[in-house]
Amino acid sequence: MASLNMKATLLSLLLLLVGLGIWEAMNQAPAASTGLSEYERMMGGADQEARVPPPSQVFSHAWDELSDPFYDAGPNDKGIGIQLAYSLYRVLTGYLAAALIAIPLGFVIGMSPLMHKALNPFIQVLRPISPLAWMPLALFIIRDSEGSAIFVIFICSIWPMLINTAFGVANVRTDWIKVARTHELSPLKTAFLVILPAAAPTILTGMRISIGIAWLVIVAAEMLVGGTGIGYYVWNEWNNLDLNSVIFSILMIGLVGMLLDMTLAAVTKLVQYED
């Protein structure tokens, strides 16, 4: 087993190195031409075509950015750490607000077939709406760009949690609920002591899906309203057609998304049980 893991790791590393090697080799800028004429400088150098920067350039740029992640050079120029913190703050605020509503509501829907039937049409219509489609309306009603971004996160992360909670609660084994009833537990106690632990793995799966979606959406939302955040950072560098920074921020977005997912995966493990 250990040797299989070892082999897999080695193979991953090898693939990475080959990939980076090809990328580096294909995108070598021509030898730095010194002594450009004024005309050539105005035309952006003698190089005929813009190219994707090689990985060595991206890494050296990443090193520069990461060695000073919290600098603040004015309202439109902040370090990558600050931008990520802004995005995380928006994601977590919207996400927690969604959880506060989705989980209790999911319980109600899961426990009551009547509520399930009554609310289902609304959920089915609202769920497929792209969260960004809400943005113009949110800006108009909330009259605050920060609030609108958080609202968009809220609205996109609420559905997986709501649906998974309802599903988990509705599918708790009836034997267990019957046992609770024979012990004369109140409905509230049944909900907390029996249904919640039983449905927890499904609920957490919903929460894990939600955080993934929220992190996907925040980048697009911030590109739209601008100001701060990792989405704004990507947009700002896109303005400058600075692919070094764009590739670097793509990597950072992936890294943070992975950390968020791993955190919820770890929590899911805590509530897992065997039948």
């Binding site: 004015g74 309202p75 800006l139 009259r143 605050d144 739209l224 309203v225 601008g226 704004y232």
Partner: peptide, 20 residues
């Protein structure tokens, strides 16, 4: 004065109408 960079005209218009 903080001069704030804005992504486009529609957003600039909405931010002004909002009073931001």
């Amino acid at each position: 004065v903080d001069v704030i960079k804005t992504a486009g005209w529609a957003v600039a218009r909405d931010m002004s109408l909002n009073g931001e």
